[in-house]
Design a protein around this nucleic acid. Structure first.
Lengths: 222, 222
DNA sequence: TCAAAAGTGTTCACCGTACACCCATGG
DNA sequence: CCATGGGTGTACGGTGAACACTTTTGA
């Protein structure tokens, strides 16, 4: 009977997005200046509340699009955070998602409107609530994923050099990699297509561009 | 300002527990006969609603204890399920947890009271809502965990034989293992203490009992 | 003495890691 | 012609997987 349901207290359900980007050198996270109380003016993850007619995944997509203008973005649920006092205004449980986006493609007008800025992952300012813990866990998850499956092409332009890809992995894993071993490993995963074009901006010799093979890439996403 | 919060609709937040046990042969899940509408009388995961003063982890512990009488149990958050129509009565988002318990230790009176029964994982009856999907994901997670870290001692009695442990891994992974390779791998993880006692019930020769080294085990739980 | 489970080692293939030199080119 | 970044191969150790026989002892 419905009384069983009515006896229980409802809560606000929020979604917060850890948005990763890569600027050819550093792994970055997009943060906003919160424009409402509490903690107005402090740095925060982009978030929002769940609407009646959408799933948490939908909400995360919507929130991401609101800030970046992008859709069809890599998004993965991290976990739900539920300390009773995590939001001082009202009991709010938040489900964290992390997203990987191409830092070149986001809509700058939108991010300006939200006073959003990119921060290096090693250099995150103090954040509201438990957002720093969310970021810690997202980085951990991202590192884990990078070590077991090809990931992160979402963070690069469509065509990229081996060196860019290696730098991305180095930024995610937080350590230098040997270029010969890196190339061997990536090529063995068989998800790259070598193009005939070269990128001539990085050196006199030029370096071959690759793109990733979406079909083969999908085999890893089980 | 608080108006920002008030504008949003609250939802019911539930917790559902996938409770794993092991009966020396098969990996099992504890299910209950649901005693309230909707779907009264159907099989279901044990669940409950989040209370105002507790975290989701707390709620999962409480729900687990209500059914089994056990506390201090291995519990891990799986993910949150949020299809708008998943519960036909009212919008309810559910966070799934999985638990590992020693099947010998649960309180039979309590489980009888809830009309709970153990089912082999290969043999789960039709369940309400999206509970079958929750179970699918929990098994997947458990398999993954078993392949990368020592896990599952929670499912065994304090003292156990190598053969019992191997059977447990076989049940989790759903495949036969070579006993020599299994022993080599487990011993290399250095989390077992070999006892002087033998279990004489399984064979004439008897087989040595082991217990696990909680301290060394903890090193794996990062 | 035999049936039933316990216990034990070796070989091989593969993978990750360490490591150093030549190439092509624009300036 | 040289400085700069691009590109390539090999040797080694460790790990996972395959595989079969001996031991013990109660019935």
């Amino acid at each position: 009977m419905k009384d069983h349901y009515r006896a229980h207290k409802k809560v606000l359900l929020a979604v917060d997005c850890i948005i990763f980007g890569f600027d050819q050198d550093n792994l970055k996270i997009l943060l906003i200046k919160r424009d409402f109380e509490p903690e107005k003016g402090k740095w925060s993850l982009m978030g929002g509340f769940l609407r009646p007619d959408e799933t948490l995944d939908d909400a995360a997509s919507r929130i991401l699009q609101k800030l970046t203008g992008l859709h069809d973005i890599y998004l993965d649920q991290l976990r739900s955070f539920s300390q009773p006092e995590r939001d001082p205004v009202d009991r709010t449980v938040s489900t964290a998602y992390y997203a990987l986006i191409n830092i070149e493609e986001h809509n700058e007008e939108l991010t300006k409107k939200h006073s959003a800025e990119w921060f290096n992952v090693q250099d995150i300012p103090p954040l509201i609530f438990d957002h720093d813990e969310m970021i810690r866990q997202a980085i951990k998850r991202l590192r884990y994923k990078a070590s077991v499956e090809p990931i992160g092409f979402e963070l690069l332009p469509e065509k990229f050099t081996m060196r860019q890809l290696q730098k991305l992995y180095e930024a995610i894993l937080g350590q230098k990699l040997d270029k010969r071993n890196f190339i061997k490993k990536i090529l063995s995963q068989d998800v790259l297509i070598k193009l005939d074009e070269k990128d001539m901006t990085s050196s006199k010799k030029g370096s071959f561009l690759y793109k990733f093979d979406a079909e083969k890439y999908d085999r890893f996403k089980i």
